[in-house]
Design a protein around this nucleic acid. Structure first.
Lengths: 133, 133
DNA sequence: TTAGTACTTAAAGTTAACTTTAAGTCAACC
DNA sequence: GGTTGACTTAAAGTTAACTTTAAGTACTAA
């Protein structure tokens, strides 16, 4: 049988607050989630896939609005495939820039840390010299 | 002579709004900037270096608050070097995680784009076959 | 001397992305 | 039949990081 989870369980599974899941649905990032007889949400495989998609992009810094644009195109059907592809390519370029910058900053930070390290080592050597005299 | 720029010029040089420069100063990311006789800010080399530091980290997603913590330690003097080093190392780990995730997302996006590409190519081939009959 | 431009400050406003609150429904257990 | 717990919605609140506004000062050119 297909896995079916409550909002609390889904929240746990993806480590996303239940309120956030409702929020994503409200603003149209998630399609309306199926409800049981008492009106509680039942999340299924297709929802999980969507949540993963959203989470991944969000963690990479893609805005909710941009994801919404994509999802909207998705709903418009197959004829939007070229636009969707274009949109993803643009997003890809942005992320590549971001990754590039990040790697530079990481290098810079390593340098600064190394400088501190050098300072500390030099200090300790001075200390030892003092102790010897 | 040392380069001296007005807030407007500095804003241009770094592509950061003048209001943002004032804001950074107000919250203590920047040290109080020197002023001329009529109370206008004069930015100099040491300010440029600080602005660069802030800009680089901000672009990598480091929060203003975290940068503030670092700057505060800096002001406390040399004895905070071990703490500063520790702080930067932690930040470095975070950024490395972020870069890692970003590279994964980039790969995922490339896959999705390739799928769209395949779909489009397949469509065109179907179209040609139709035209031939 | 007046107009314009470039600044100044303090305070209020904005935006994105949630998060919290308030009030209510429903099924299960005591 | 009352209480508990897991949900529901709509609306209000929060936070970070700016950005805008309002009111004022100072130099410069006409």
């Amino acid at each position: 049988m297909e896995e079916q989870l409550s909002i609390a369980q889904t929240s746990q599974k993806f480590n996303i607050a239940a309120s956030t899941l409702r929020y994503y649905e409200k603003i149209g990032l998630m399609d309306p989630v199926e409800k049981n007889a008492s009106g509680h949400r039942i999340y299924k495989e297709k929802d999980f896939r969507r949540i993963n998609f959203i989470k991944t992009l969000r963690e990479a810094g893609v805005t909710v609005e941009q994801i919404k644009t994509y999802v909207d195109l998705f709903h418009e059907g197959e004829h939007t495939i070229p636009q969707r592809k274009q949109l993803l390519i643009e997003q890809l370029h942005l992320l590549q820039k971001q990754a590039d910058n990040l790697l530079h900053v990481i290098d810079d930070l390593k340098d600064i840390i190394q400088n501190y390290e050098d300072t500390l080592v030099k200090r300790e050597m001075d200390q030892r010299r003092k102790n010897r005299t």
